[in-house]
């Protein structure tokens, strides 16, 4: 997408735009088929669906971890199809990703894990310290800076992953089952954190099984079944 087109996309405030996206895995078949939707800047939306419906796959396409078999994915006004390989790191810095399996480094402290995106982006020491502490404070793990992930509970590890995703203050955050390992109280706390991010203008797309939790919150919900979009409550 050219600069002018990109500007146009920003004007209509589309942070994510899927156009007839299909993702096919050779051994498996279509994980996503002919998917089209948009997410506006500053929007907070849930992505739900049965296990194997394609939620993680959809998020991976946005983070450019994988490419669609057919169709276009636009993120922050950029057509990812035309994004050269050398620009992928810059794209990923604008997308904070929370992974279903945490993806933490076992041999690094909580602090170092959270600092990773800032270190990769070349931030200064002082700035890194300040931001990492702020992010850990947000997820309630300020006291665990010096510990290693293995000594943490599943929920705590999940929160370290969330701190890492928000630490560089990306305009878009993708969360894959961020409350999967949390008890109801902690889940609501994390949702509270996401809502705070939402209030300051961050765009969030949250994949979750937790239908009760989703139903209790007034946000748009996209529902996938076998890779097809079968429900969209629309922007609320």
């Amino acid at each position: 997408m050219r600069g002018a087109e990109r500007l146009a996309a920003i004007e209509v405030n589309q942070v994510i735009r899927f156009e007839h996206v299909t993702k096919r895995y050779p051994q498996h078949g279509n994980a996503l088929s002919d998917l089209s939707f948009e997410l506006k800047a500053g929007e907070m939306a849930f992505l739900t669906g049965h296990s194997g419906a394609g939620k993680s796959t959809l998020l991976r396409l946005i983070g450019l971890i994988e490419r669609p078999t057919r169709g276009q994915v636009m993120v922050n006004g950029r057509n990812l199809r035309h994004l050269p390989t050398r620009k992928i790191p810059l794209h990923r810095r604008e997308v904070g990703m929370i992974f279903q399996d945490h993806r933490l480094l076992a041999d690094r402290t909580v602090f170092d894990n959270v600092a990773l995106p800032l270190v990769a982006a070349g931030y200064r020491h002082k700035e890194i310290r300040r931001r990492v502490r702020a992010a850990l404070d947000q997820v309630g793990l300020l006291g665990k800076e010096r510990t290693f992930p293995v000594t943490l509970s599943g929920g705590e590890q999940q929160r370290v992953g969330i701190a890492r995703a928000v630490v560089a203050r990306p305009p878009l955050i993708l969360a894959d089952e961020p409350t999967g390992n949390l008890d109801p109280e902690l889940s609501r706390e994390i949702m509270g954190l996401f809502e705070r991010l939402h209030r300051v203008g961050i765009t969030l797309l949250i994949a979750s099984h937790d239908l009760a939790l989703i139903a209790s919150l007034p946000y748009r919900t996209l529902t996938l079944t076998n890779g097809s979009l079968v429900g969209d409550t629309g922007t609320r």
Binding site: G42, L90, G122, Y123, R169, P171, R196, L197, G201, I202
Partner: peptide
């Protein structure tokens, strides 16, 4: 937190190594 709203449409800072001293210490 207030910084978030402004950062939405702004590119994330990408080239932080402006000073040679920073580059060297890195």
């Amino acid at each position: 937190m207030r910084a978030h709203r402004r950062s939405v449409h702004r590119r994330v800072r990408v080239h932080p190594f402006h000073l040679p001293a920073t580059w060297l210490s890195y």
